[in-house]
Design a protein around this nucleic acid. Structure first.
Length: 444
DNA sequence: CGATATGATTTGCA
DNA sequence: TGCAAATCATATCG
């Protein structure tokens, strides 16, 4: 009420330029203090009438009047008054409904996207899918969930998510700028307070964030689907090819005293097996290395649990290894007949040489020993072993380690049921066998 | 179809 | 963090 009076007073005191300029509708002169109440009311009535009829005018006319209004010297004062009024009424209408708390659902979605590595830092290895949350450490995360397919798909989802998000953000910004410009433009002709602009921006942002939430929701769904599919695929058991099993077994039995392949050995084995393993299913290389770890873990535990059951297999592989070694060494000897007999076999150039590993001798001991029961090893194999024994005793000077009657397998395990610690080799192991790093693979 | 073999996962420990 | 042990789940065999 009070405000209205002020407006009217203001309007009354400003002969609206438009009217006077355009002629025809000149306002009555201000009455000042001399007029009666009736006269004043009449003025106000006139002004209101003019305002009301402004919409009836043609666009050009209105435009011209608007321009006239804008140019009027009293316009700023009048405008600020209008702004003030609007501000006050606007505030009272809105009340205190600002500052809505963060949407819990949105927070949940954000957290999940972060955990799944979709919205997090670029390479963060955030594929905390499945169980291995510990895989978060970057670098050589070969034991982590390293399914190439999964990663590829996740990256795809991630990319789509980010492009879409960016698109939305851009659109939001563009729209906001546009609206702000519009409002600013309009603010010259109608009272628009900064608060109002702010509020409008807030509304726009809310609208866009609801769209973003939809995007996040569908991204989450996609990740969940991918994850479940991936886990199913992983859980599914594949059977290694015979070749791969053979390679692994060979390594296992020829390193029976310490069947813990180093990272390099695992890599090597993985490489060797990957040819065959990859035939079973689409298995990336990094995964085969992880399969090797699995295999050795299973093998160790199962071997230890039932050594008797694996005896046959052990002997078989020992013989096989012996044959291979015999061939290799024989070939080497033949190739370098003139060499001194003490020269170590040069056939050990392979990355991990089964035939020359220290465990070979354990195998041979078992084959040669009294307690050997593997009747399935044929005489020809035995003769090969004998040849090998002979050759090796000449070439490497290991003769003192041969001829024992120890069964290698049980003795490779210590009393605790664990494998012999490489740092404390027992007498069973060839005296020449040093710590793990020395005896393994390419030594000799 | 049940038994067995074996690859994969989980859990707990040092 | 890597391993042992337990366990799960599936492929294969008889």
């Amino acid at each position: 009420m009070d405000e209205q009076a002020r407006i009217m007073q203001a309007l009354g005191g400003v002969s609206l330029a438009g009217h006077s300029v355009q002629g025809g509708m000149a306002l009555p002169p201000p009455h000042g203090h001399d007029g009666t109440d009736d006269g004043r009311k009449q003025d106000i009535g006139d002004i209101l009438h003019q305002i009301m009829t402004i919409t009836d005018q043609s666009l050009d006319e209105a435009q011209a009047k608007k321009h006239g209004l804008n140019c009027h010297r009293m316009k700023p004062a009048l405008f600020s008054v209008l702004c003030e009024i609007k501000e006050k009424t606007g505030l009272s209408i809105r009340g205190a409904q600002e500052e809505d708390p963060p949407d819990p659902q949105l927070m949940r979605l954000d957290n999940m996207l972060l955990a799944e590595g979709v919205s997090g830092p670029e390479k963060g290895g955030g594929s905390a899918a499945a169980a291995a949350a510990a895989a978060a450490s970057g670098g050589a995360s070969d034991n982590s969930i390293e399914h190439s397919d999964y990663r590829a798909k996740l990256t795809q989802i991630r990319q789509i998510y980010h492009t879409e998000l960016e698109k939305y953000e851009q659109a939001c910004n563009e729209f906001t700028t546009h609206v702000m410009n519009l409002l600013r433009e309009q603010s010259r002709t109608r009272p628009i307070s900064p608060k109002e602009i702010e509020r409008m921006v807030g509304i726009i942002h809310r609208k866009f964030s609801s769209i973003q939430m939809q995007l996040k929701q569908s991204t989450c769904e996609a990740v969940m689907i991918l994850r479940s599919r991936f886990l199913d695929a992983r859980r599914k058991r594949r059977n290694f090819s015979k070749q791969a099993t053979e390679i692994l077994n060979e390594y296992f039995y020829s390193h029976l005293s310490n069947p813990y392949p180093s990272e390099e050995a695992k890599e090597e084995l993985a490489k060797k097996c990957s040819i065959t393993v990859s035939q079973v299913g689409a298995v990336s290389f990094s995964q085969t290395q992880w399969l090797v770890s699995n295999w050795f873990g299973n093998k160790r535990i199962r071997y230890k649990k039932n050594i008797g059951k694996f005896q046959e297999e052990a002997n078989l592989y020992a013989a096989k290894t012996a044959v291979t070694a015999a061939h290799a060494v024989a070939a080497a000897v033949q190739n370098s007949q003139t060499n001194s007999p003490t020269t170590p076999s040069s056939g050990s150039s392979g990355s991990f040489n089964l035939s020359n590993s220290g465990d070979m001798f354990l195998s041979m001991q078992s084959l040669n020993g009294d307690s050997y029961q593997g009747a399935q090893v044929g005489a020809n194999v035995q003769s090969q072993v004998d040849t090998l024994r002979h050759v090796i005793s000449q070439t490497a000077g290991y003769s003192e380690g041969l001829g024992g009657n120890t069964m290698y397998s049980p003795h490779s395990l210590n009393t605790n049921g664990g494998w012999q610690d490489a740092t404390t080799p027992s007498s069973v192991i060839s005296p020449n066998e040093g710590p793990r790093s020395v005896h393994s693979d390419t030594s000799n």
